[in-house]
Amino acid sequence: MTMEGETSVMVHAASRCDPRTTWEDVCSLDEILPGTGVAALVGGEQIALVKTRRGALYAISNFDPFSKAFVIARGIVGDRDGVPKIASPIYKQNFNLKTGECFDDPTVRLRVYSVRAVAGRIEVQGSSGGWKW
């Protein structure tokens, strides 16, 4: 069980990310308070950008499949047994911030994105396509 370190410069490669897409500048690092998330529009997609209390960054889909609302960024950020997670603000399901997996329903998994901090800015690797019904 490992916890993220104190540093905020951290890259979380997500399995399903298209390597050809480019990094998109989103916001400055201090626009996200530690332990909270913000919503961002990246290539027309709603992404929840999350900074943990210790400064690690994650990017995950903002869509809550249980309520069908775009709200994940407003959830409470924490950990379960050291695994960083976010809880949906509507019905409180928990999602693994590293993998997007839902702790409460193994059939559900949110998309995660690569994110990095460069010179005080946060960049996300959006996807091209892949959004459909």
Partner: peptide
């Protein structure tokens, strides 16, 4: 210990 969760934080 840890970072907390939706139970302890509120």
């Amino acid at each position: 210990h840890g970072e907390g969760c939706e139970i302890c934080q509120p």
